[in-house]
C-alpha cells in the first residue's frame, strides 16, 4: 500500500507524519519527494547509502547543419530556443525535455544530450528503506527526479515480490492489502503543482496534514481539491492542535472530510522533532498516536477501496 502525505503549505508537518508512520510500520519504504529540501534523512540517518545521478535529455545544435528555419523556436511552448544573428541559442534550464525540436528539425541539426539535474540516494535505517531525491541548487524542475524515485522504488518492490514468489508460489499475485507490511510512505513537496501531482499519482491513499492557521486552511483547500481531481481516497491529520480556534478543523468538519488523527501542539514533541529524533521511537504516547493513525488509514482504505468519499463528493 502506498500512502502519500501532502499539505499545500510548507511546515505543517508532512515529514513529521511521514517519518513516524514509516517508523511504526514493521517494514516500510520511505520516499522523500520534497526534492528541493529533502529532510527525511535527518531523522532516519540512513546507512549503506547508494547514489545515482538523475539526468534529463536536452537538445544540442550543430551550427554547421542549422539552416535558421526556426521551426524549433516556433514549436517550443516553453521558449527554450531563440535564433539570434545566425545562431541558435538553447536555454537548457527552460527546456522541459519533450524532444519535439529534435524530431521537427528538417536539417537534423539538433541531437540529444544529457544534463544532470540532481540525484537519488537510497539507504536503510532499521526496517525502513529510505529514498531521497535531491534537486541541484538553481534547477527549476524537480519532476524528473520524482518520476525516477517512484519508478526505482516500484521496480525494487516488484523484484522483492518476485523473490518471495520463488520461495512460495502461493504468495504470488496477492493484492497490496494482504501484505500490510509492504508499506510505502511518500513524503510530498509542499504546494499542489505538477511536482505534487507526480508524487501522488500512484498513491493508494492520501494523508492531508493541516495546521490551525487561516493560511494553512487555504492551502489545505488546494490539496483537498487536488486529491479529489485525482480521485484518491484521503483523510486529514490535524497537526499542532491546541485550545481555542482551529480554522483547519472547522473547514474539515464543514466539508465532511475524515479526520484520521490529531497531533497536539506540544513542547516536548517539537523539541524532539527539531533535534532530528523520530518521536514515535522516543515516547510510547507518540508511538501509539502514529500506530493508531496508520491503522485508521489502512481501515479507511480497506473499507472504501475504489470508492470516493460520499460526503465530499456531494459537498464539492
Amino acid at each position: 500500500m502506498k500512502i502519500a502525505v501532502l499539505s499545500g503549505k510548507g511546515g505543517t508537518g508532512k515529514t513529521l507524519v511521514s517519518v513516524n508512520l514509516a517508523s511504526v510500520a514493521k517494514t516500510a519504504t520511505y520516499i522523500d519527494c520534497d526534492v528541493e529540501e529533502p529532510n527525511g534523512h535527518l531523522f532516519f540517518k540512513p546507512k549503506n547509502i547508494q547514489q545515482e545521478n538523475v539526468a534529463v535529455t536536452i537538445p544540442q545544435v550543430d551550427s554547421e547543419l542549422c539552416s535558421g528555419c526556426r521551426k524549433c523556436v516556433d514549436f517550443c511552448k516553453f521558449n527554450a530556443l531563440a535564433y539570434i544573428k545566425g545562431n541558435l541559442l538553447i536555454f537548457e534550464d527552460v527546456c522541459h525535455s519533450c524532444g519535439g525540436c529534435i524530431i521537427l528539425c528538417p536539417e537534423k541539426a539538433l541531437s540529444e544530450k544529457e544534463r544532470v539535474i540532481g540525484k537519488i540516494q537510497k539507504g536503510n535505517s532499521d526496517q525502513v528503506t529510505i529514498y531521497s531525491g535531491i534537486l541541484n541548487t538553481g534547477e527549476a524542475n524537480g519532476t524528473p527526479i520524482i518520476k525516477k524515485l517512484l519508478n526505482i522504488s516500484k521496480s525494487e518492490e516488484n523484484k522483492s515480490e518476485c523473490n518471495k514468489s520463488e520461495c512460495n508460489k502461493s504468495e504470488q499475485e496477492k493484492p497490496a492489502l494482504d501484505q500490510p507490511d509492504e508499506l510505502t510512505i511518500i513524503d510530498c513537496p509542499p504546494g499542489s503543482a505538477c511536482i505534487v501531482m507526480d508524487s501522488i499519482k500512484d498513491a493508494d491513499y492520501c494523508v492531508l496534514v493541516a495546521e490551525p492557521t487561516i493560511f494553512g486552511t487555504h492551502n489545505l483547500n488546494m490539496v483537498f481539491e487536488l486529491v479529489q481531481i485525482f480521485n484518491k481516497r484521503f483523510g486529514v491529520v490535524l497537526n499542532k492542535c491546541q485550545e481555542g480556534e482551529n480554522p483547519a478543523k472547522d473547514y474539515v468538519l464543514k466539508k465532511g472530510i475524515k479526520i484520521l488523527g490529531e497531533i497536539p501542539f506540544d513542547h516536548e514533541l517539537g523539541k524532539l522533532n527539531s533535534n532530528g529524533e523520530i518521536i514515535a521511537k522516543e515516547k510510547e504516547e507518540y508511538r501509539q498516536l502514529f500506530s493508531s493513525l496508520l491503522e485508521k488509514i489502512k481501515e479507511d482504505f480497506k473499507e472504501n477501496k475504489g470508492e470516493v468519499h460520499h460526503e465530499t463528493a456531494s459537498s464539492s
Binding site: 523556436v73 517550443c76 511552448k77 516553453f78 521558449n79 531563440a82 535564433y83 539570434i84 527552460v94
Partner: peptide, 18 residues
C-alpha cells in the same frame, strides 16, 4: 505574443525585439 507563454516569456519577447 510572448505575454501568454506558459514559460520563457522573456526569451520569446527578446526574440520579437531582435
Amino acid at each position: 505574443s510572448a505575454a501568454s507563454s506558459p514559460g520563457g516569456a522573456g526569451i520569446k519577447a527578446a526574440q520579437i525585439i531582435v
